[in-house]
């Protein structure tokens, strides 16, 4: 376990080597194929038990942990690099200033001062070289950590893809079982493809017939105007009303 933590890629690399050149992705698919060939319904359990899911899940945890650690190390290293870079900048500025002082001393023919300044300059240059070496070492380490993290990210992505393949296969089998059971509970059978097609065709035929009826339907034309005008009709009606009231009396 401790070995795994130090190198999360180790298991995956060795697994890849021992399987085939096509890579670990094919290996997982081969495992799935084997389980399907054996006609096992318990795919997830079978793959888990045969060095599959469970190991991948552990590897994924290790890889995630390793990425977390790498990110922390990169943050620390970035801080150190920045600090070293600032130090070097200050030393370089001091070197430039010292150089100017030496030029000034020489221009004033003050050889003793120039020599003294040059001696100090040697120390400054030694400091600068030391700091530059430290900075280079931080840069190298940072590059190494970044590459390591990227590699682990790639491993993680690959492991998750493989795990997804196994889980999807198992989930779809489970979903099919759930659907079949649901139909069985409802006392209904999934229709055969041909019967479904017949049903669809019948329905389509009905829809087509309905379209035909709809197309044959015409908007009602304007009703023929009554020979009597509305005013005449009202007069006739009024006469009827009067007659009815008189008869009542």
């Amino acid at each position: 376990m401790s070995d795994d933590k130090q190198d999360p890629n180790k298991d995956n690399k060795s697994e890849g080597k021992s399987d085939n050149k096509a890579g670990v992705g094919k290996n997982i698919l081969e495992k799935i194929m084997n389980v399907i060939r054996e006609d096992s319904r318990a795919l997830s359990e079978a793959v888990m038990d045969s060095r599959g899911t469970r190991i991948h899940e552990r590897q994924i945890e290790v890889a995630k942990d390793s990425i977390k650690q790498a990110k922390r190390a990169i943050t620390d290293e970035l801080a150190k690099e920045l600090q070293s870079s600032r130090k070097l900048k200050i030393i370089n500025e001091r070197v430039d200033q010292q150089e100017q002082r030496i030029i000034d001393a020489l221009s004033q023919d003050d050889e003793a001062l120039a020599f003294e300044l040059a001696t100090e300059m040697v120390e400054l240059e030694q400091d600068r070289d030391t700091e530059a070496a430290i900075l280079r070492s931080h840069e190298l380490h940072l590059g190494h950590l970044t590459r390591q993290m990227e590699q682990t990210e790639r491993t993680l992505m690959e492991l998750e893809r493989q795990l997804a393949m196994v889980q999807t296969t198992a989930d779809i089998q489970k979903a099919t079982d759930v659907i079949t059971q649901s139909f069985a509970k409802a006392d209904a059978k999934m229709l055969s493809a041909k019967r479904s097609l017949e049903r669809i065709r019948r329905k389509q035929q009905q829809i087509d017939q309905q379209y035909e009826v709809d197309e044959g339907w015409e908007e009602p034309k304007e009703l023929p105007a009554s020979k009597k005008s509305i005013a005449d009709q009202a007069k006739d009606g009024a006469a009827d009303v009067l007659k009815r009231i008189i008869d009542k009396d």
């Binding site: 795990l163 997804a164 999807t168 779809i172 979903a175």
Partner: peptide, 19 residues
């Protein structure tokens, strides 16, 4: 008028199936 579509979700995918 077609077939029922069954939808299920896995970790990365939404899978739509017609039997």
């Amino acid at each position: 008028d077609g077939f029922p579509v069954f939808i299920t979700q896995t970790q990365f995918q939404i899978i739509c199936i017609v039997y």
